[in-house]
Design a protein around this nucleic acid. Sequence first.
DNA 1: CTTCACATTGACGTTAACGTAAACGTCAGT
DNA 2: ACTGACGTTTACGTTAACGTCAATGTGAAG
Lengths: 128, 128
Amino acid sequence: MKAVYSISDLAAEFDVTTRTIRFYEDQGLITPLRQGTRRLFRPRDRTRLKLILRGKRLGFSLAEILEIVDLYDAAPGESGQLRLLISKISNRRAYLRQQLQDIEATLSDLDAVEARCVKRMSALGESI
Amino acid sequence: MKAVYSISDLAAEFDVTTRTIRFYEDQGLITPLRQGTRRLFRPRDRTRLKLILRGKRLGFSLAEILEIVDLYDAAPGESGQLRLLISKISNRRAYLRQQLQDIEATLSDLDAVEARCVKRMSALGESI
DNA sequence: CTTCACATTGACGTTAACGTAAACGTCAGT
DNA sequence: ACTGACGTTTACGTTAACGTCAATGTGAAG
């Protein structure tokens, strides 16, 4: 666990292009330090990137992902802000639960398809 | 459960535009019947649409979704085809399992954020 | 017959999320 | 001093998944 990473370090580790990482910075998703003109990524930035990619695998847009990762290090002092944050979290949870249902439904569909498939194969007298 | 649906029936039921449905037909995702020039959607088409939208919620592209829904009513006779189908199913399962992990990780993250949040509120002496 | 809601096919416009190319800076190694 | 690997910004190109007209057809109701 290094203290700083170059842009190509992270690109290699997470299998994205440097262009992608710069684009994420452009969109305000990451804010690496600078040493002169070069970007310096701290562990914090690395974590952010990891979260971004996780969000992408779940099909969220970058705008949504920005909202989500911003939840993580929001430290609002006022109680109105806190209430808003909690409500956002609740919305996000509802969405994720829907996704869970979708995945389970799909997995069970796949089970059925595969079962038919195996049956058909054994009918053909084939070994698996 | 009607026998046939108009395009706007389905659009209303699933909260998409007719444009979207026509686009899906264009991409070969649905193939409704025709009565003259008009589209006639059978329960089969309705089910397909439902599957498509489920795929979308999981962040799949239409191309991927086409592959997935095609798994469902593939009835290949030859054993090579069957083996291929089973391998595709297995790949899909792996992807879905990754998504499950992502969702669980995110949910647990949200738990942590919320806990911090609640703690902060109680420190402010507020009721929830 | 006309109106009206609903349908059709084109065709161009739009947004997100990068890809790609150009033109250039910088720094360690030989 | 030169090369090569790595970095930078700027800017135009691309693809997916529709949106948005426009022009037109069609069937039932008044």
